[in-house]
Nucleic acid binder design. Structure first.
Lengths: 115, 115
DNA sequence: CGCCTGATTCGAAATGTGTCAAGATAGGCG
DNA sequence: CGCCTATCTTGACACATTTCGAATCAGGCG
């Protein structure tokens, strides 16, 4: 006699439940989510993603925040590995690192039925 | 004469760059990323996802943390909408809310070529 | 009811984060 | 070189977060 378990309850519903996420791995990945966990940085990432390659001066106007604050958030995104930047003359341009987004998207991917 | 733009540079590389992420929307979504932005909570989410429906008492032993601290992190995950829970007798069981993971995964999905 | 176990809430301490003003740095231009 | 603009760093402050122990709540059981 074979017992068939209810897949909704018993199986991992998503990739996150199938990876071996030990403490070291969690400490490596969590900062990426953390960087996206601030509304300002999430919008910054979206603006950069939308523009492809965006000058800081194009970003600042979208927020009621000082330049240093925007700069600080961009640094956080960069140190998390989500964006990269390059100076060109007077301006600094930022772009998304798609491989980082892909890593996170892969973890969150849902494999089972969504309730 | 038609000018053809380089799609790698000019097009959004991911869904995040195609959605209209205004401040209100960012403030709604960012807490979900924030909740996953702590190594303990990320591992908790992974353990819950792996188990399908997991008792708190099965989670605590995986960490060098007190019960109240685990409880606090679980509350954070729940308030972010990433998990839900239910009391059954003495025990409380947690499970993933796949629709929330799917929302985040969709945002991070990469549509263009990955450098 | 009274006690035990599992889980959460409360209160407090240490640490981290978001923000700004002021100052420093980098590069273009005269 | 000296000045201007764009960006980043520093220093400071208010607020949030992580963590614990102690107390509390919820439910089973004698």
């Amino acid at each position: 006699m074979q017992i068939v378990l209810d897949p909704v309850v018993e199986a991992p519903c998503c990739v996150l439940g199938t990876v071996d996420l030990d403490q070291a791995e969690a400490e490596r990945i969590a900062p990426m989510f953390k960087a996206l966990g601030d509304p300002v940085r999430l919008r910054l990432a979206a603006l950069i993603a939308a523009g492809g390659r965006v000058c800081v001066c194009e970003l600042t106007g979208n927020f009621d925040l000082s330049g240093p604050t925007i700069s600080h958030h961009l640094k956080t995104l960069r140190e998390a590995g989500l964006v990269d930047c390059e100076r060109t003359g007077t301006w600094v341009y930022y772009w998304i690192r798609p491989e980082s987004l892909q890593l996170l998207a892969g973890l969150l991917q849902v494999t089972g039925p969504v309730g």
